[in-house]
């Protein structure tokens, strides 16, 4: 087994644990490279099926390419697809800086959707290497009633024994890609020939490394037009993956506060 085989096997194990231990679970689909890999892994785990709903919490501000991708593959992959709308921006805390406000709006949309479908848990495609706060996450990560994350008191997690016992009312985030890196995602996408949105490839010297709302997501300098070139670029770059995501950078602890409040 090579590194990608090991990563795949671990993710499948996590999917199967969560599906067996937790009732009423759904997957979050952001349409980005990571959540596409996540769907792919679910199909591997469940032998071609995705036996739970796949939900896109829509800000209405994604790139047109992303919507086209979503509509095509929700159908082609046979997903139980749900689209949930976020509340209008006016309803979100006005004191937040602009980009964080957009993120907070998405968090509000997420809370609403969880409430609506009474999901006990959600699969989310976050990775430890994306960002320092995510590095501290657990694979099975319990949230408070409002979706808050208490990073000060997280359950122990060892020997692939995840926390699967919860008092009623607990919401759980399950992270099947937590142990993957950005390079792993691309190498796996390449190996498995997973469809990808074109925005990730360089046009006129720029490409998107991470996709979010179009008004707060910016491309990075790049000449990479193929996956192997992206991988080569990532092996040498010192720019962080989320550098094009404005909401991370508005204050020193912006992202941590977003996450503590329930953001992915």
């Amino acid at each position: 087994m090579d590194r990608l085989d090991q990563l795949e096997s671990q993710s499948i194990y996590i999917f199967r644990e969560a599906f067996n231990r937790i009732e009423n679970i759904a997957m979050l689909w952001s349409l980005g490279k990571d959540s596409n890999v996540m769907i792919w892994l679910a199909r591997k785990a469940f032998f071609g099926h995705v036996p739970f709903p796949v939900m896109h919490v829509d800000t209405g501000k994604k790139f047109p390419e992303m919507y086209a991708f979503r509509d095509r593959y929700a159908d082609e992959w046979g997903l139980k697809f749900l689209r949930e709308e976020c509340p209008p921006i006016e309803e979100v805390d006005q004191s937040l800086p602009p980009a964080a406000r957009s993120a907070a709006r998405k968090t509000a949309g997420l809370k609403k959707a969880i409430e609506k479908y009474q999901f006990n848990a959600l699969f989310a495609g976050i990775r430890r290497d994306e960002e320092a706060t995510r590095a501290k996450e657990r694979v099975f990560s319990p949230r408070g009633q409002g979706g808050q994350w208490d990073f000060r008191d997280q359950p122990p997690e060892f020997w692939d024994q995840y926390k699967t016992d919860f008092p009623p009312g607990t919401h759980i985030r399950v992270h099947p890609l937590l142990h993957w890196t950005e390079v792993d995602i691309w190498a796996y996408t390449q190996r498995e020939q997973i469809p990808t949105i074109d925005l990730y490839f360089a046009k006129d010297g720029k490409r998107y490394r991470s996709l979010g709302d179009k008004d707060i997501t910016f491309p990075v300098d790049s000449t990479a037009t193929t996956i192997p070139e992206i991988i080569e670029e990532l092996r040498t770059t010192k720019i962080s993956e989320r550098s094009g995501r404005a909401m991370d950078h508005e204050s020193e602890d912006a992202f941590e506060r977003l996450r503590a409040d329930g953001y992915l």
Binding site: A132, K136, F151, R152
Partner: peptide, 25 residues
Amino acid sequence: ALQAERDQGITIDTSQIWFKTEARD
């Protein structure tokens, strides 16, 4: 990197981070 840790001066949780040598990751 966490706010709380800087305030307390001790590492609260286990944290993961990647680095490379010539030999491997």
